[in-house]
Design a protein around this nucleic acid. Structure first.
Length: 429
RNA sequence: CUGGCCGUAGCUCAGCUGGUCAGAGCGCCGCGUUGUGGUCGCGGAUGUCGGGGGUUCGAAUCCCCUCGGUCAGCCCA
């Protein structure tokens, strides 16, 4: 190797062709699913005032440690976006659009943390948010769209975990009960989890240490400590999911990292993936966040879904292979100067045919090899003979088209190829 | 931030306890067929053995540091 002086920073990666074609298709699939439900795209800055992301919540210390923050040349404290929701909420507060505001986004997210399976310093998320409605049917719609999206990718072996965090008041009461429960058994917890009991007992619930898990298996569930209103909200969400035939598993230990989460929380977890970081889509209601960012009391709910993890899950299930072949036609030119390739590719592209050619005056053998590698279903060969006859030789490259090659009049070439390609497209579906 | 494993060609890897250890397969390029790919045959190119330092007559091989990869905790998508 001509030794590379630089490489992509730790925890980041280059997504090159052909792998990048899967990304394009994934984004298109997502956009299709959410836009037909009335969601509009939001593009917001990749960096924000640090305060947008750093709030008073208990998780704040950890959040700050993982944030890519810096002072810009004007002395402003800036942070690269670590997640999608906060920017959307900031934009909502700033522009005050009419409620309910239903929006989606696709964005990179940056977190300064150690790399692990399914965890990167720059990862990519698609997500959506609904601001301004407390209706439990919105919870159902959001979860259903997440579900639809995963299905559209072909994922089947995915489990929906569902829980509720109640309201802030519910949680205060519950945390007392939970803390008491954990304090009584503090000796049975894994050592590293013991200090959390005082500070943030709900964090103990999602510890991955088996020792701790054995204890929390019998911990009191928040669902049993809800106010009647919270109870009612959760019931209606479950009812809605049942009506839409979306199976879910109640997971009392499913908690979210931030304080502003309320009521419904959910995660989709692929069963085929062994990694510790498996959640491919997670979200919940956050009825306090808009206020935290200086807006009027406004309910909100949304989810985020990690593209890298989605693709890991797709690989594990052997689904969503991505599009095959970048072009349908490859022009092979064995005339002097290759001017036919130059002109013919332009003509075919103008007619909407995806085609490519070789450069650098390669010999026919090399051009045919390139044609094969391009994934094209047909080669269009032009040499002195064809030039004289004003024709082109259309040569099939894939077994299903046989070995027969046609001499096609140049005037009929576009129509001829279009018909062949149409046929191919039909065969693939 | 803490810990385990790993770093040899574009890719996957072999290289025993330091002494032809710079190798294989795939891929790439060319030729067999100066107008036919994918199969087959033949030939070819590419490496400061991640980087730096040390031990030694001698280091891909042993030691230290560092960077990167990977996995786990924590956190989350």
């Amino acid at each position: 190797m001509a030794r590379a002086r630089f490489q992509a920073p730790k925890g980041t990666q280059d997504i090159l062709p052909p792998a990048s074609a899967r990304w394009e298709q994934l984004l298109a699939t997502y956009a299709t699913v959410v836009e037909r439900a009335g969601y509009g795209l939001v593009q917001s800055p990749l960096f924000e005032d640090l305060g947008v992301f750093q709030r008073e919540s208990e998780g704040a210390d950890a959040v700050r440690k993982e944030m890519y923050d810096f002072d810009d040349k004007g002395g402003r404290r800036i942070a690269l976006r670590p997640e999608g929701t906060a920017s959307i909420v900031r934009a909502f507060v700033q522009h005050q659009p009419a409620s309910p505001w239903k929006v989606w986004y696709a964005t990179p997210a940056f977190r300064y943390e150690n790399v692990q399976a399914g965890r990167y310093r720059q990862h990519h998320q698609v997500g959506l948010e609904v601001l301004g409605s407390a209706d439990p049917d919105v919870d159902v719609e959001v979860i259903a769209l997440g579900c639809e999206f995963l299905q559209a990718l072909g994922l089947r072996k995915v489990e929906l975990l569902l829980n509720t965090m109640g309201t802030a008041d519910d949680r205060l009461r519950y945390v007392e009960v939970l803390r008491e429960f954990l304090s009584d058994r503090i000796g049975e917890l894994a050592e590293d989890d013991r200090e959390k009991v005082e500070r943030h007992p709900m964090r103990v619930l999602d510890s991955k240490r088996t020792q701790t898990k054995q204890v929390t298996a019998s911990a009191p569930a928040i669902a049993d400590h809800l106010s009647p209103e919270s109870q009612e909200h959760f019931e209606r969400v479950k009812e809605g999911l049942a009506a839409l035939r979306i199976p879910y598993v109640l997971e009392p230990r499913l908690v979210r990292g931030f304080d502003y989460y309320t009521h419904t929380t959910f995660e989709f977890v692929p069963s085929m993936v062994e990694n510790a970081q498996a959640t491919i889509l997670g979200g919940g209601r956050y009825d306090g966040l808009v206020e935290e960012l200086g807006g009027p009391p406004t309910p909100g709910i949304g989810f985020g879904s990690g593209i890298e993890r989605l693709l890991i899950a797709c690989d594990a299930e052997g689904v969503f292979p991505g599009p095959q072949g970048r072009v349908d036609v490859f022009v092979v030119d064995v005339t002097d100067g290759n001017h036919v390739a130059r002109d013919l590719t332009a003509q075919l592209r103008a007619a909407g045919i995806r085609c490519d050619r070789a450069f650098d005056g390669k010999g026919m053998r090399a051009q045919m090899k390139a044609a094969d590698r391009s994934g094209a279903s047909h080669a269009v060969i032009v040499g002195d003979q064809e030039l004289a006859d004003d024709t082109a030789t259309v040569r099939p490259l894939r077994a299903e088209f046989g070995e027969h090659q046609d001499a096609v009049a140049r005037a009929d070439l576009v129509a001829h190829l279009s018909a062949l390609i149409d046929h191919t497209a039909k065969d693939q579906t």
